[in-house]
Design a protein around this nucleic acid. Structure first.
Lengths: 228, 228
DNA sequence: CCCTTTCTCGACAATTCTATGGAATAAGGG
DNA sequence: CCCTTATTCCATAGAATTGTCGAGAAAGGG
């Protein structure tokens, strides 16, 4: 029977972390940061926020300890404070999708319908084996900086905006398994639609880099081999 | 590059789940519900809220799908919508404790300092072995309804308010391992202080029933054997 | 059918959050 | 040292939340 005031205060402290997760914009920022560190300016542009607003949201995140900063000359890089924060983001979205009716329609409105005759997405566990057997090649369609910060071993890197013109770099005979940031990232959906329209055998990875990393599957870093 | 409006809407939907976790009172309610279902009235009393306020918070939780209800005659029982919600609560507190400076002091202010010469708490994995070997006996100090809804196999049940008068029911020779709701529940701390003051060998389980269940360790249900 | 119990709903004031423009600060180049 | 760039701080308007009160709805007993 310790006193109620102290209990309230403790739970209010937990709630501060919940509050950090209570704005859609902050979740977008966390999602971006889960791919690697970024400057305030880059984050603001990617999330469609004006600079001061983005800075304010990042301050909130920093005060609850979910993100950390690093100064490099004149610019400040933000990053997630730890892998547990990525886990929390992942679990939050999973729970929301499972229990909240509004998520499913919003999801298809954003990601678009799957191509009608598309097979089910490739599961994480199967991908490395399919690559090793030569049946498939992994394609990372995120921006190059994110690829450099960590990618699936052996994956090619072609950002989705360049995909139309660089489609020739993909092998013609293998199936292309496309992935991007995570389960709710639109890039891979767009890429698969583009490739399929061009007559390639393309399929999405079930989710993306975030879930791959959290599953503790192997990750390569560095600009690496890029596209063939 | 699917449109920004749709992306914002999707993330706003995720944020609704975050919002549900952004109030200390709602987190207290979830913590109670993680021990089993309860009526609105019981929840309000346990969380120190007036009835309408509790009802309003429960409505918020219900709208985001984190809790579900069951009507039984004139009263309504609330329960967690799934084990993943308990997981989310657990991870949220873990992340908050790890990254947020305000948590540690609030925690000791509420739970009180450990007895000075107390050994480290018993870890989950060790408990069953120590019970089987006869070195220890587990003691559940939560209210009887919570014990009935699920407890560690073989544990005795003595709610902490009755512990002083029922201390004789505990075996004298074995070490008593006390547990309650979870890592942030004060009951086990209080019980250990009481037992130690009476000259018993008592020690806390590292955390409580919530973490035990999430670790998928065996759980017994029913009023069961209660105290010897 | 009325009355009691249990809970939800609508409305209010007090507080807090979000977005934004303009000023202030920090680091580095000429 | 001044100037430019990158970011944070401050003030403010509008929107959303919290807690509380009194009224309303649903189930069951006499």
């Amino acid at each position: 029977m310790a006193d109620r005031a102290a209990k309230t205060e403790l739970y209010e402290a937990f709630a501060a972390t919940g509050k950090a997760l209570s704005s859609g914009k902050r979740l977008e920022l966390l999602d971006l940061l889960a791919q690697g560190e970024r400057t305030v300016d880059a984050l603001a542009k990617a999330a469609g926020l004006n600079l001061t607003t983005a800075s304010a949201h990042l301050q909130t995140l920093k005060q609850t300890g979910l993100v950390a900063t690093r100064r490099d000359g004149v610019r400040i890089h933000y990053r997630l404070a730890g892998e547990d924060v990525a886990q929390l983001l992942d679990l939050l979205r999973r729970v929301a999708e499972r229990h909240q009716a509004a998520v499913a329609p919003a999801r298809t409105a954003y990601l678009g319908p799957e191509a009608p005759d598309e097979q089910d997405a490739v599961r994480r566990e199967d991908l490395l084996a399919r690559i090793a057997a030569g049946h498939a090649v992994a394609l990372d369609v995120r921006p190059v900086e994110e690829y450099a910060a960590g990618h699936i071993p052996g994956a090619l890197s072609i950002p989705v905006e360049e995909l139309a013109e660089r489609i020739g770099e993909l092998p013609e005979d293998a199936e292309v398994v496309v992935y991007c940031r995570g389960a709710y990232c639109a890039l891979a959906y767009d890429a698969v639609r583009l490739l399929t329209a061009r007559g390639r055998r393309a399929i999405r990875l079930d989710d993306g880099m975030l879930e791959w990393r959290l599953a503790e599957l192997p990750v390569d870093a560095g600009a690496g081999a890029a596209a063939a």
